[in-house]
């Protein structure tokens, strides 16, 4: 029983972090039909920067998200205005090619400047745990999950309680309707892309503590994140949440009762089964036109 509770608790902690990482990806797809496969590279880039800053200053890597999140917001905004805007209105395949190019550029630059070997930030609490009854929760995972939930909560508030968020949701639901009420599609697109990459700011800082990484780790991360949003339904934030929790639980349950090497396979098997029954994912809509008219 204790082992089961322990496994579920760890799965939920990991799921919370995955939810944040996937939220940015699904948000950008939902609003712009852009599949940002550079999201994994953004995570690794920020993990590397966080690791470096932690090495130089000793500042807490997760708290460094306070700097890396706005940094990624700015970088995302610039990238959109300078590069991504050029594939706006084309097919998602074009956006994948472009963002894959961005990912390869980041990987190459990291290889050149930081070298091709594993790193991990290990703050003082790295090996410590909270004990709740007989359940052991590693401090790093608890702090990481709390930071992720905080940012997800902020994202929820921005999307639901501010005019900026309403404009973003309106554009996602009905772009021509949004234009009719005076919402500037290009501003909303730049802002959404920036918010999407900003989540990789927090996500990357958390990643630097929870997972060892090296420049090419981004392939593994983007595969995971795409898996989550395909399972949840492309473009659905709620779907990203549920997909992330399922991935977190699948990983910990398989690792506990089977072997860690089967964890990824189990998750993809779940995706396969869900897509057999619901081809558009758990919370996906068939076509935007279906609901817009």
């Amino acid at each position: 029983m204790t082992q089961a509770l322990q496994t579920i608790a760890l799965g939920l902690l990991i799921g919370g972090v995955y939810a944040l990482m996937a939220a940015g990806l699904t948000l950008v797809f939902g609003i712009m039909n852009i599949v940002n496969v550079a999201q994994g590279a953004f995570l690794v880039l920020i993990a590397m920067l966080t690791w470096k800053a932690w090495q130089l200053t000793g500042l807490d890597p997760i708290l460094l998200a306070l700097a890396t999140t706005p940094l990624m917001f700015g970088l995302g905004w610039l990238l959109y205005r300078l590069v991504v805007v050029r594939v706006r209105g084309t097919t998602p395949a074009m956006s994948m090619l472009l963002t894959f190019g961005i990912a390869l550029t980041i990987e190459g630059l990291l290889n050149l400047t930081a070298g091709n070997y594993f790193r991990s930030a290990t703050p003082s609490y790295f090996a410590q745990s909270f004990h709740i009854g007989s359940i052991v929760l590693p401090k790093a995972q608890v702090y990481g999950c709390l930071a992720a939930l905080l940012v997800l909560g902020l994202l929820y508030l921005v999307l639901n309680r501010t005019w900026t968020g309403r404009a973003i949701r309106a554009t996602a639901q009905n772009p021509s309707g949004a234009a009719l009420v005076g919402i500037s599609a290009s501003s909303v697109a730049a802002l959404s892309f920036a918010i999407g990459t900003a989540t990789a700011g927090t996500g990357g800082s958390i990643l630097s503590v929870l997972y060892p990484f090296f420049p090419a780790s981004h392939y593994e991360w983007i595969a995971r994140l795409l898996g989550i949003i395909v399972l949840g339904g492309m473009g659905s934030l709620r779907g990203a949440w549920v997909g992330a929790i399922i991935l977190g639980l699948a990983e910990t349950i398989t690792a506990t009762y089977g072997s860690p090497r089967w964890a990824t396979l189990v998750f993809y098997a779940v995706i396969l089964l869900v897509l057999l029954v619901r081809p558009h994912g758990l919370f996906g809509t068939r076509l935007r036109e279906d609901v817009a008219t």
Binding site: Q173, N174, L180, V291
Partner: peptide
Amino acid sequence: VPQTGALFPRM
């Protein structure tokens, strides 16, 4: 007010 749906369906 256009010919086809201009509303935001999930709002």
